[in-house]
């Protein structure tokens, strides 16, 4: 199943890139479509942040919960405010959570 997901995502993402390189610019002249496309990464990334940090595996499936990951996210936030590069942001998040769990 994971392999199938990798292939589907790979082929699909390539076709999305190729479509952008191949279709005329006019396609996205419709303002609703353009705004939706602009907002999609913002909304999805924000949802991914929230779910990755606040969801734990409970006995009856996924549940909300707070643990060291939230502290890691807070530290990542500070790193971003200080204009740290991406790799530093990721390391700071991991390190903070790891230290809290010692």
């Amino acid at each position: 199943m994971i392999w199938l997901a990798v292939l589907v995502c790979g082929v699909g993402c390539y076709l999305l890139k190729l479509a952008g390189m191949s279709v005329p610019d006019r396609v996205l002249e419709h303002p609703v479509l353009r705004r939706t496309a602009d907002l999609l990464p913002v909304v999805l990334l924000a949802a991914l942040v929230a779910v990755q940090v606040l969801v734990t595996k409970g006995p009856d499936g996924p549940a909300l919960g707070i643990d060291a990951r939230l502290a890691g996210l807070g530290a990542a936030c500070v790193a971003l405010v200080l204009r740290a590069p991406f790799i530093v942001v990721v390391l700071v998040a991991a390190l903070t959570a790891a230290l809290l769990r010692l």
């Binding site: 942040v49 990755q52 060291a68 990951r69 502290a71 996210l73 990721v90 991991a94 903070t96 959570a97």
Partner: peptide
């Protein structure tokens, strides 16, 4: 190693 927390940090960095 806090790798589970790194995922949230990575998404925040992209956002």
């Amino acid at each position: 190693y806090g790798l589970d927390a790194a995922v949230g940090g990575a998404f925040l960095g992209l956002l």
